[in-house]
Structure formats: structure tokens, C-alpha cells
Design a protein around this nucleic acid. Structure first.
Lengths: 251, 251
DNA sequence: ACCGTACGTGCAACAATCGGCGAGAACAAG
DNA sequence: CTTGTTCTCGCCGATTGTTGCACGTACGGT
């Protein structure tokens, strides 16, 4: 076991378990707690984890000194992405939509996940290229710039050949009455086409999407298996969604 | 055991095992740890692996295979890219291959160029998204990670529907006798398919490609309209190429 | 307030690294 | 055939990195 490898392992455990206990790791790896502590100290110094008494936690997203709003949005997206990633079964086929939340999902995938990811987003595909074990199938077509995804007739046609277990749908609005909406008609059609090719569709809805509505309707709320969000269930909009029978997956 | 052979073995082990331990390799090959270390050091300098205490790890695709190669001969690539961009007529349809030189071409495109760019590289497509006036058509298919392009049957089929004026072809080797070569058979087939769909094919050949050869043949030198390179025409390889009747476009 | 546990630091032993050196092989030029 | 050059390889010594242990301190639960 190389030192650098061990540190990667620590970071993996942090991502997967959300924490690391120095004593346990020392026992598992068969070395002294001192060494584990030293590693954690170094990783913390590099900003890769947060040191706590007894072990360490993943680096809190709020470590940076960015604009506060951006941090919240990023944190929200990351939470939603992490919850979405947990839904993916090894060996399954997953369709991932375009957009920033979908991109966060790519980064939240476990490093050793073996799965086939289908996407119509070149950005998602490019980001996945750095993942060791995931296979990538890219849906081609006319690329629309505002959201950087392939859409149009050719893309819909290419999507018809796909059969997936899950589809992670990104939208710009989730509203109790208008349902799931987005800003472009062609894109909405593309999202519908992808949704038809998956057994279950989950919506990636970071906080700011909840209660918002955009011009073009994608799907009714009843057409999806669940909405993944980190918005608090106590808000009136969330309660309306719950009353409408929508399954809420809390991140 | 030849030196080059030994280094290939090291890279194979890195791919297969995800790590190499200097001590073990030295014992296995029956030579001193110093030699193994020297090899690892050189490979790391070339961006092909990441040196760590006790051995080496594969270069992460994010920073290594792709990003490190990007560092190498960046000036050369940029010159070639600028010359290639000058060949594009406004209003034409252009196919752009994958790879770092192709990416340089994207950045070298005039900001006000109106053209349709067809590509099977998600990286190229994503980079083009920031361009104001260029339209993008993405060819989908199975994405191969080492070069981050869509290849395979579906991609070839999707390419059949395209008719372009120019194809900018990226290869890893340009040699007077072996012609144009690359490192993957499927990729070579894809490049041939794209070449058939364009009236003229130009090769993007930064200096380090000239005189090099890779396992799989893409096209003979006679099949392309020209080779864009910044290698000096005085070198013996370049003179051999010229004598073989290859059109050289000097950057 | 007390006690067990975790923490950090300094230390010693050991392993790995790096640069330089010289021996030997391969090769070209005279 | 001899000479000189270049490359590779193993070895040496100085340096740096890693590890476990000991000791005093800080922390958290009871």
C-alpha cells in the first residue's frame, strides 16, 4: 500500500461514509493511529477534509470565501447530487440530463461505480471521461448553446435506441400547478423523450428551482418517480407538492 | 529487455494494477531499484504517470493524459491551429476531430465566424458552446475515454448523414511510409468515416507527430488534401513527405 | 471535577529519493 | 582495429519522507 494510495482511500471513505474514524482506519489498514492522524492532518491542511476529534469529515463546501449566495447554491446542488448518486445501482444504465446540477452529479459519482451513463450533454460526457469505471454513451444532435445539450429530431431519434433504469432530469422550475418546466421547447421535448426511455425519472431540484416556473412544460409531476431536493419539507410549496402526491426525496 | 520495452511494461502495470511499486518491479525484472526509479521519473516528467513515494500511480486522466499533453508543445499546436482556422470559409461546414490540437483549433476560430461545426468530441462541443456564432452538431455514440471521442458503429452511422467541406483530422503519427496512424482501431475507423464525409481532409500535425507512427493506420498520405504543420521543411522526414507528393501547409 | 481518550510534538529507526560517479556495452568515425 | 562518444546501469552518500513510540497536553463525556 503506497502512501498516496492510502490518502486516496481516506478521501474515498470520506465521500462514501461522510466520515472517517482514525482508530477504525488504523485497525483496518494495520498501522498506527499516529500515521492515520498524520494523514488526516495533511489532508486537512490541503483543504481536502475537515479535522474533528476522533477522525475527520469531508471538507465542508463552505470552506471557500466565495460569495455567500453562490456557496449556498453550490452546496444545495452538491447535496442533491450526492443523494441522486446514492440512487444508482452498480451495473445499471443511467441517463443524465444537462445543466449544472447534472454536472454536480457526475462529480458525486462514487469513484468505483460501474455503470453505463447515457447523456446528451457534451459537458457531462467530457466530465465523465476522467471517471475510471463508468461507460459513456453520448447522444448526438444539434447542440443548443444556452444549455449545451444535443436536442432536435436527430437527438430524439438517437435516444429511442436507449433503455435505461434511471433518468436524472434537470429542469428550471418545479411548481405544484405548472409541474416541471424549462426554458426551451425543443429541450422540453428532448427531456420527454429521455424520460420515456427510462424506467424511473427523478428530478434534480436544488432549492432555487422549487416554486419556480418556466415557459415550456416538460412533464406533469405525476410522471416522475420522485423529486430530489434539499429544500426543507416545511415550506408551503413543499407541502403543496407533497399533498399533490409527489414523492419527495430529501437530500 | 529493451529500455523502451520496460517502460511500456511499467505503463501496462499502471493501467492494470492502478499502481507500481518500485521495489517489487526491481525484484521482478532483476534490476536495481535505481533503474526502475529512473524510468518512473522519466515517465512522470513526460506526464505519463504520477510519481509517489514508493512507486507511481497512473496519471489521472484529468491532469495527466490530457492536461499534461496539453502542456507539451502548446506553442506548436497553437500555430497549427491558427493556420487551420484560416482555411475555414465563412458559411461552410467543418468537421473537427477530437484531441488537444483540435481543441486548440476551436480556440483559434475567429470570434465572428459563421459556420457549422460537426464533431464527435464532447470536449470540442463543450468548448464551442461559448462561441457566439458557430453552430454545433454533435455526433453521438460510445465514448472512448483515452481520447474522449464518440466512436463505434452508432457514431459511424450518425456521421453518414453529414456532408462537410472540410475535415480537420488529428492523428498521433505522420510518417512517410506508414502514413497517418493512431492508437486505437475503432478510432481509426471513425476518422476514416469522417474523412469520407468531407470534400477535403487536412491533418493537424504539430511537430511531435511528424515522423512518429502508432499501431493503427487511419489513411494513406495520398488520401488527404494536406498536412498542416509547423515542423521545418528542411528536416529529412519533411523532405521525404514532400517527395512522396504530400501537400504541406506550413504554419 | 474527574478520567479516559485523542492529540501534537519530538525522537529514533528505517525506507526511499536524488545526484553524481564509474564500469561496461553499443556504435560511429578514423 | 582503435579511439572517442553516448547510453545504460549499478553503486555510493547525502538528503528527505515515513513510521511507531513516548510523553505531556487538550478534549469530551460522566
Amino acid at each position: 500500500m503506497l502512501v498516496a494510495q492510502r490518502r486516496d482511500l481516506l478521501l474515498d471513505r470520506l465521500r462514501l461514509d461522510g466520515r472517517v474514524i482514525a482508530k477504525d482506519l488504523a485497525a483496518e489498514l494495520g498501522l498506527s493511529e499516529d500515521s492515520v492522524r498524520r494523514d488526516l492532518r495533511d489532508l486537512a491542511a490541503a483543504g481536502l477534509c475537515q479535522r474533528v476529534y476522533g477522525g475527520a469529515l469531508p471538507a465542508s463546501p463552505a470552506t471557500g470565501d466565495y460569495a455567500a449566495r453562490q456557496d449556498i447554491a453550490v452546496g444545495s446542488k452538491r447535496k442533491v447530487a450526492a443523494r441522486a448518486a446514492a440512487l444508482i445501482q452498480p451495473g445499471s444504465t443511467v441517463i443524465i440530463d444537462g445543466g449544472t446540477t447534472a454536472l454536480a452529479l457526475v462529480h458525486a459519482l462514487p469513484a468505483d461505480l460501474k455503470a453505463l451513463v447515457v447523456t446528451h450533454s457534451p459537458t457531462v460526457a467530457a466530465a465523465l471521461a476522467t471517471h475510471a469505471t463508468v461507460e459513456i454513451y453520448l447522444i448526438g444532435g444539434r447542440v443548443f448553446k444556452h444549455s449545451v445539450v444535443a436536442s432536435g429530431a436527430a437527438a430524439v431519434e438517437a435516444a429511442e435506441g436507449v433503455n435505461a433504469d434511471l433518468f436524472f432530469l434537470g429542469v428550471t422550475g418545479v411548481h405544484p400547478r405548472t409541474g416541471l418546466t424549462t426554458g426551451d421547447a425543443d429541450e422540453a421535448a428532448m427531456k420527454r423523450a429521455l424520460s420515456r426511455r427510462a424506467a424511473d425519472t427523478y428530478v434534480l431540484a436544488s432549492t432555487e428551482k422549487i416554486g419556480a416556473a418556466s415557459p415550456f412544460s416538460v412533464l406533469p409531476l405525476t410522471a416522475v418517480a420522485g423529486i430530489i431536493t434539499d429544500a426543507p419539507g416545511t415550506s408551503s410549496i413543499m407541502q403543496e407538492l407533497a399533498e399533490a402526491g409527489t414523492a419527495i426525496v430529501t437530500a
